[in-house]
Write a protein that binds this DNA or RNA. Structure first.
Lengths: 199, 199, 199, 199
DNA sequence: AATGAATGAGCCTTCATTCAT
DNA sequence: CATGAATGAAGGCTCATTCAT
């Protein structure tokens, strides 16, 4: 039966609200009100407010990770892979704008339940970055790329650039191309090349 | 006389505590306790908890901006400028680790007082990025650099990479060199060069 | 069901406590404690402490006004009407001694929410005095009374006398008669009459 | 030396401010600010906030009592005495409008220091009313007045009427005459007289 | 004597959580 | 299962009072 329908509604509403304000500025009253459920219902599906918060994030990240893995399986060329993956990330966060803010909140390390949650966040975030890292590694192993940094480090740098780009899309080139442009910049660098071709 | 001494103490304590937990997890009791001042004293120097929070951020950013501007005035070469500026940012955040978390929290836009605070944050953040953008522009105008992105956009990308690097310094090359390495990567790109020189 | 039961309990307790001390001397802790409800419950039924305060007053005044209007509908003779109305006022305040203090507190004029509350207070207070004024007007129109003051002014004077009497009932004639005696004094005056009849 | 100057300034400012809001709405910061003295200075002349509050009231009442006693010594005729005393009260409160609100606040009975203060208030208030009572008694003893109420009770009634009149001067006859008119109403009554003359 | 920065007890208010219906 | 009235712990904030200068 639609017993998970309500959980879904709660998650969606929470995603929207948590994105519009800080944790302590969003009340469970707001969430259950806008989700159209009773306040107690939240506690039937989630342990507490913190749990709901993390479920929103983890559920979202799961979708993104799944989407990224498809790219890795479908593309062989490192450059194309990085570009597609980058576009995939940006597309995802454009649609789920609310999630964007949540995902990149600084985590608090700890050993309690909250710490375990961040552990899960870490795993998924890593899984997403691994797609970038895999393509970079592929490029290095095929001697197409050369770099003084590890694939993992480069993956993080890509992540950082995409994040900055998303936060300021108005400064980026229009359309859906900018993630590709960013990746190409990383491939070619700022210094002009003799055989200037990039892709 | 040391009439501002207390305000300083409060700011420092608040910086440390706000960095160790989210806004709502830090109580004014903690702050005044660890700062060694009475609770009311906080309100002599700051409007309220929110104001204190912002002052911590803005005060920190001011220091960083000042430090960055020195680089711009001391260095002429674009590449060296970018490297030094990048190192300056990383050095700053290493010393003020606590500030790092705070500075990159997602801002909430608004027209009220909180919105005005974020406006100020924006101004300072922009001023910091402008140093990067200026060096990039310098490089482009001297035809040393070539890029399909605006200097401002590239500045943001650098900022994003540094942020990612700082959050995962263990994955970056050891020592104080990695910011320079990151800048060099951006300069040279991943694709191998015929005349392999980098800087 | 008894969903308003708690609000009633809160109002009654607040009436008693507010009457025993000034606004700032009564704490919500006292109120909810003595009312046997949780502190948060107060805020389910009232906006804040100030609102509770005004609701106590307005609710009480409503009862009095209702009681007064009955007198106006039941009595035709001006003198009898004034006497009965006066007795009604005094009886009411004797039973609701706590309310007496509250009702005659000086109001603060203003245009904010507090001002609106006092506006409501004014309306009800006026409605109560109108009963007196109506009887006086009736007496004047039937040429039974003659006066250099408007019925409204006389109504206020009656109100003032009753207030003074209530505050010092020990100086007034015993029993329930003194309000009637006061009205009769106003009717006949202090100067002796040739045909000494009073009522 | 002018060491009492400051106390005077504080009293005057406090009188104005206490009249403009309730006890808890007036802060010592406001008072010392508007009085142009340091906050600590208040405590050199007054025990605490409560003490200052009462000193404002008592000081004012003392002036009024003094003024009333002059009337009693200068006038012999009961009617004229009552009229002059009534006018004196109204004149006083017109000039010291701020005091009016304070003087008629309901007192809280108690045995502590606050209770002692109200005791003093009572003494002065009684002294003021005694002037009215004395004239009434004079009238009764000279068989000019006849009444079923004691002179003290009638004095209170007069006080009550004047209070009501003051609170609603716009409803009273214009000019300075209305206190006299009120007293004359009490003398003559509402019922028409055969030999209609009043004074 | 005068000042006003500093204090901290105390209070209002919020809101996550519970549980009777 | 769902609800939302009730709860009370917790925290932001105020302001009377003190005391070093």
């Amino acid at each position: 039966m639609g017993c998970k329908r309500k959980a879904k509604r709660i998650l969606q509403t929470a995603e929207r609200l948590f994105a519009s304000g800080r944790f302590h500025e969003v009340t469970l009253d707001q969430i259950c009100q806008e989700a159209g459920v009773g306040k107690g219902t939240i506690y039937r599906y989630f342990d507490d407010k913190e749990d709901l918060y993390f479920q929103v994030i983890l559920t979202g990240l799961d979708e993104l990770v799944e989407s990224m893995r498809q790219v890795r399986e479908q593309v062989d060329d490192p450059g194309e892979g990085l570009r597609k993956a980058a576009c995939r990330v940006v597309e995802f966060y454009r649609k789920r704008h609310a999630l964007f803010r949540l995902m990149h909140t600084e985590q608090i390390r700890g050993s309690d339940r909250k710490g375990q949650m961040w552990q899960k966040w870490h795993t998924r975030h890593q899984a997403m970055l691994d797609v970038f890292a895999d393509f970079v590694r592929m490029g290095i192993e095929s001697e197409r790329y050369t770099a003084r940094l590890s694939p993992e480090a480069i993956a993080r740098l890509i992540g950082g650039m995409l994040r900055s780009g998303l936060r300021n899309e108005d400064e980026m080139p229009g359309g859906d191309e900018w993630p590709a442009v960013v990746v190409e910049l990383l491939e070619s660098g700022l210094l002009p090349r003799e055989n200037g071709e990039t892709s």
